[in-house]
């Protein structure tokens, strides 16, 4: 299956290992991964800050780049959510609708179009799963406690299927980590307080590893963990799955 890897702007610059792990993992799963998708950003940072006009160019570049592909995979729930639900309205063309149709979050793609809801692999650690809110409540890639749903979802199933992996239960399994894009710098005190509480929940349950499908949550939580919980290993889901299936 031919897929384009779309690397969100901040992943390209600040977490290249997540992009590489996504590429390696997809190739290991038999995909023909193209790196020809050439747009740096879907426009979400500007759009969520209210500056829709400034999001238009980035979103249009993104939509135009998507035209050549039938599947685009992104190692980010939040960006995928933006592409699927907001980008078509911003660019207002068929290209936007196409981008929304063909873009998938990594776990969603592995379990869905690729048809492998479970992977053979081993990861003998106690792992806390942090599913980003846009993946959970925006893309519905995991149960929402507000809706009385079980945790579930593709990321949960992929993790639960690995040998040796123990998913640690959290007191507040789907509480937001406090990143929130511009919120992280616009409301730094609440943002960091939320992140600390999230990490406390995770470390109090004896997790050795925290894994997320959203590199933006990781960027924020890692920044806080480096001061408060230095022993916690923080991984992107692609990095964990790549390591587990070597």
């Amino acid at each position: 299956m031919r897929v384009a890897l779309a690397v969100p702007c901040y992943v390209d610059q600040l977490r290249p290992q997540a992009a590489r792990a996504t590429m390696v993992l997809l190739e290991r799963l038999g995909c023909d991964v193209s790196l020809a998708f050439d747009a740096p950003c879907c426009g979400q940072p500007m759009f969520n800050a209210g500056v829709v006009s400034a999001a238009r160019d980035a979103a249009s570049t993104w939509a135009a780049s998507s035209a050549a592909f039938d599947f685009i995979v992104m190692p980010s729930g939040s960006c995928t959510h933006h592409v699927r639900h907001h980008l078509p309205g911003i660019v207002g063309s068929d290209e936007g609708a196409h981008a929304a149709r063909v873009t998938f979050e990594l776990c969603e793609f592995i379990a869905g179009p690729l048809g492998t809801p479970q992977l053979a692999g081993r990861f003998p650690h106690r792992v806390a799963m942090h599913l980003g809110c846009h993946a959970r409540r925006g893309l519905r890639l995991g149960g929402s406690s507000e809706l009385h749903e079980p945790p579930g979802g593709p990321m949960h199933t992929l993790l639960a299927g690995l040998d040796g992996l123990t998913l640690v239960p959290l007191d507040r399994p789907d509480e937001c980590c406090g990143f929130g894009g511009s919120f992280a710098v616009g409301e730094p005190d609440v943002s960091v307080a939320m992140g600390r509480d999230r990490l406390t929940d995770i470390t109090a349950h004896g997790a050795e590893v925290m894994v997320s499908s959203d590199p933006s949550c990781l960027l924020h939580l890692e920044g806080i963990a480096r001061r408060g919980a230095p022993a916690l290993r923080t991984l992107h889901i692609a990095e964990l799955l790549e390591e587990a299936t070597r």
Partner: peptide, 22 residues
């Protein structure tokens, strides 16, 4: 710097971006 002021470290910057390494 609002990113760091309340107790959050700046990200560690890799020497290469993903695209540069590719």
């Amino acid at each position: 710097n609002p990113w760091t002021r309340s107790g959050r470290e700046l990200p560690l910057a890799p020497t290469e971006s993903f695209r540069e390494s590719m």
